[in-house]
Write a protein that binds this DNA or RNA. Sequence first.
DNA 1: CAGAAGAATATGTGCATACATAATCATGGG
DNA 2: CCCATGATTATGTATGCACATATTCTTCTG
Lengths: 230, 230
Amino acid sequence: MSRRGWQEVQDELIGRINDGAWPPGTLLPAETALAVELGVARTTVNRALRGLAESGLVDRKRKAGTVVAEHPPARAVLTIPVIRKEVEGQGKTWRHHLLLREAAPAPAPISARLHLPARAPMLHLVALHLADKRPFLLEDRWLNLAALPEAEDVDFHATSPNEWLLAHVPYTTGDLSISAEPAGEDTADLLAAPEGAALLTLDRATWNDGRAITAVRLTYAPGYKMRAAL
Amino acid sequence: MSRRGWQEVQDELIGRINDGAWPPGTLLPAETALAVELGVARTTVNRALRGLAESGLVDRKRKAGTVVAEHPPARAVLTIPVIRKEVEGQGKTWRHHLLLREAAPAPAPISARLHLPARAPMLHLVALHLADKRPFLLEDRWLNLAALPEAEDVDFHATSPNEWLLAHVPYTTGDLSISAEPAGEDTADLLAAPEGAALLTLDRATWNDGRAITAVRLTYAPGYKMRAAL
DNA sequence: CAGAAGAATATGTGCATACATAATCATGGG
DNA sequence: CCCATGATTATGTATGCACATATTCTTCTG
């Protein structure tokens, strides 16, 4: 029945879950048993099950075995590209204006979010990104100078903060919060939106190897949609 | 230097990318070479590299080799739980009201989004979800009756459409679009928000094994923030 | 009978090997 | 010189084996 690969095995298992043969809560056979039944090596079954566990369809615990999840959460992978790439991907011309560049101690909400001591020395950058000369998004960023002293000497007119960071600290972890916010007076003005307009807003904090790097708020112009694959 | 496992190998590789030893665009050594250098089996290097490829840090192609990505996009994993679970996770009481239940042909935008013929027979459901008796989110759903004829006989007063679907078709694929929308008159009323308020809105289309299942729009009450891990 | 010590077991991972597959690269014919 | 074709090569994956590790289950002891 099997012949080809772990994908085939995975499809078979998904099928059994979806058609009700293994309803939520079912303890399913051990890897070794499945391997024998499907005529493949245990490694192959393991690969298939690992995938299902990653996507949340099953829960696995050593010795306890593999159980079909009761409430499999939907997982969507958001891909947040470099801003320039995103604009150019729409066939538009990208530009950016640096509106503010100021070394300043971190205000309380920022230092708290990054788990830094109050008033840690930071670089505050505000940049407006344009697509075909129309406002696209506002980048309001606080950069931790202790982690990135080089930033002090960078010309952010030439390279956007967004892009400079990615080139310098490509691999980061962090968290993200997505919300809809009404446009404040200044923001409305910069994004050419009516005051109070609904704006998609991303708040992001970034660490690298345990060191706080940056906190940023991205405010998109009205009408922007973020897409993700499930 | 190595000793334990693919994670250690992965950390080592991430380190070399992050500290500039392998800048973006670099073609890195073949798996076999890395395996020898790090004193592990190729399988282990492969595991580490596969992880990096999944998170977008490197691009891999057969024969061509592994290249450090030029613009590693940030990837965030959004976990969208069952609505009831989410509300209860905040320590609040969940309830829902079914506001509309109507069999009707799909309007054009819905059938287009699901790649179905125009006016395909569907079930239109609107439900308001409450957290501690306060409006939490509005669920506006179109269900493909051809794929799920059982839905015709379900009492959606007892089980929310959201939850019924998850129990019936646990594993689905689809796409998701996230935006900020101003509250329309009806929506504002139902969510107890001022008209024009900024509301986080999710639009989702769902397939199972190539068959269109449902299209849904979730409109959250003001102030809602969606969180994700990077 | 409670609680600690130990056996049993399912998953997690590493390794060596083999073959599959997709690109690329080199080669030779027109 | 161009292009088709086949050789080369890096990744992709399967397999059998071994051992690690986290739990659970069992049993022994006070």
